[in-house]
Design a protein around this nucleic acid. Structure first.
Lengths: 199, 199
DNA sequence: CGGCATCCGTGACGATACTG
DNA sequence: CAGTATCGTCACGGATGCCG
């Protein structure tokens, strides 16, 4: 909750009171990948300043979106993690990603990029593959998605034992994310290579 | 699009570049009620300053969310209206309202209130009534909702010729909005009075 | 080195006053 | 009625420093 509230008895305004601040929803996006350390968050949120990130994490913990947990030694590092309430923001991020996907048509040279940022709009399109864990290989990097409502929803890098792997280029990935073509169409047209590893 | 962009090649971040600024999504909320004049917008967005509202409307027009139209004389007043692209933000507002509805449990004395603010979370729950236009009567005021994907989605005050009218209290309205009870359950328990006017 | 806190310049925001 | 102009304040972004 920011210092500035809307003070409106409206469900949408109440939500924006909590998650309407700059960076908050993008922090949620990162935490959908599971528990993360402060430094990892800072690395995957290029542009955020250290104090704003720390301040947001405090606000989010106070508002019940996240919890802070100390990993047992050795390591004894603390990680940030979404609460169930914070996890319920996934539909908000999905709706935003749906709306914003067409804007990916113009790719600016200054744009930062992490492969797992494609996971949110892509996840639903992979649901009918019949695979719990899907590894996605783009030119820009590899990430994996869980389609079984598991936590974490996705992660960077290859999966442990994926049920399927998808190899495709960025344009195809966006087209599938937007629902313009299906995964099966992509395979049929040679844009996507779908592999099911032997058990 | 604000001066500050995230500069991230991510669909959700791109959306937030356009609608992440303070007040923008609440202006969309108001424009879902159809074409509105500047003064009306200002009246139903308590707390927004005149310059910020003017600035947002400019940004939104530049970004293709709204158009400005001069009504034919007499009157010759100009109104703001959502474009199809702007209208596509409804799922975003619905997802936000879903998430924010539990926060309506605590009602602060400083909260502003407009009856039609209940329309967004309520609209989907009225879809299976088989009525195109539903008039909703709360203690706080009357508004009406179109459930046939028509524009406008809702409006203040009574409807012209509603297909159904609902009379209920605020708590019941929130419970239905959250999906905790259905309209039919509300009627059965005496919390909702549903009237279908004779043709 | 991870996890912040502090300082500072810039810009966004909010309230009021004013104008065509 | 529909904004623009002005101004004080606060949030943001970048850099740096501190401390376990």
């Amino acid at each position: 909750m920011p210092r500035r509230r809307y003070d409106q008895y409206c469900a949408a305004a109440r939500a924006l009171d909590t998650v309407g601040d700059r960076w908050t929803l993008l922090i949620v996006r990162e935490l959908l990948a599971g528990p993360r350390r402060y430094t990892d968050l800072h690395a995957d949120l290029p542009g955020v300043s250290t104090d704003v990130l720390a301040s947001r994490l405090k606000d989010m913990e106070r508002d019940g979106l996240t919890t802070r947990r100390k990993l047992p030694p050795p390591g004894a590092v603390s990680v940030y993690e979404l609460t169930p309430r914070g996890l319920e923001l996934l539909p908000v991020l999905t709706a935003l990603a749906d709306w914003g996907a067409p804007a990916l048509a113009d790719r600016r040279p200054t744009d930062a990029l992490r492969a797992h940022w494609f996971a949110i709009p892509l996840a639903r399109r992979l649901e009918d593959l019949g695979a719990n864990v899907v590894e996605v290989r783009l030119d820009e990097g590899v990430f994996h998605v869980r389609t079984d409502n598991g936590r974490p929803l996705y992660g960077d890098g290859p999966a442990d034992r994926p049920d399927a792997t998808l190899t495709l280029d960025t344009g195809t990935c966006i087209a599938i994310s937007e629902g313009r073509i299906s995964v099966k169409d992509g395979v049929r047209e040679g844009l996507v290579v779908l592999e099911i590893p032997p058990v």
